Amino acid sequence: MGGLVEIAADQHGSAALRAYLARLAETVLPPAERASKAKAALNLWTGYNPTSGEEAALDNELDRRLAPVQRP
């Protein structure tokens, strides 16, 4: 990975390298942290802020809809 970082730094400078590393970090966040960030962004963007009960109901509905197409 060091080679890619060096190439990015040489070609685009340190600001682009920081942006690249930030994007790379987004891909390696644990699922719970990604979900938390997505929820915060959705709340900021739309004001949507479901209760834990509403989230559970939505999770159950999603599971129900996905069940017919999931592999065993």
Rank of each mutant, 00 (worst) to 15 (best):
L21Q: 15
T46R: 11
N43Y: 13
A56P: 00
L4V: 15
A15E: 13
R23M: 05
L44A: 15
A9Q: 14
G53F: 06
K39N: 08
R65C: 01
A8S: 08
A25I: 03
L4Q: 13
N60R: 13
L17N: 00
V28Q: 15
S36V: 03
G13N: 05
P72E: 14
R65D: 00
A16P: 00
A67S: 09
R71T: 13
A9H: 07
L62N: 01
A22G: 03
R18G: 04
P68A: 02
R23P: 00
G3S: 07
R71K: 09
K37E: 12
R64N: 04
L62V: 15
D10F: 13
N49P: 01
L58S: 04
T27P: 00
A15P: 01
Y48H: 13
L4D: 11
E26Q: 14
G13R: 04
V69D: 12
A8E: 03
V28F: 13
A40Y: 02
G13C: 08
H12T: 05
E54A: 15
Q70S: 09
L29H: 12
A35N: 09
L29A: 10
E26D: 12
P72M: 08
L58K: 08
Q70K: 11
T51M: 02
T46F: 05
A67I: 00
A19W: 07
A22Y: 06
N49M: 04
L29F: 11
D59E: 11
E6R: 14
A16K: 05
I7C: 05
R65S: 00
R65T: 00
A9M: 10
E54L: 04
L21P: 01
A41I: 04
S36T: 11
Y20S: 02
L66W: 01
G3I: 03
A25F: 04
Q11V: 11
P30W: 07
R23N: 12
T27W: 07
G53Q: 09
V5I: 15
P72R: 12
A32L: 12
A41C: 03
A57M: 09
A56L: 14
D59T: 05
L24F: 13
L58M: 13
M1G: 07
N49H: 09
A15H: 06
R23C: 03
G13D: 06
T51H: 03
P72K: 12
L17A: 02
A67L: 10
G13H: 04
H12W: 09
G3P: 02
A9L: 14
S52D: 15
L44Y: 05
L21M: 15
Q11C: 06
E6T: 07
A40L: 10
D63R: 14
A22R: 08
L44C: 02
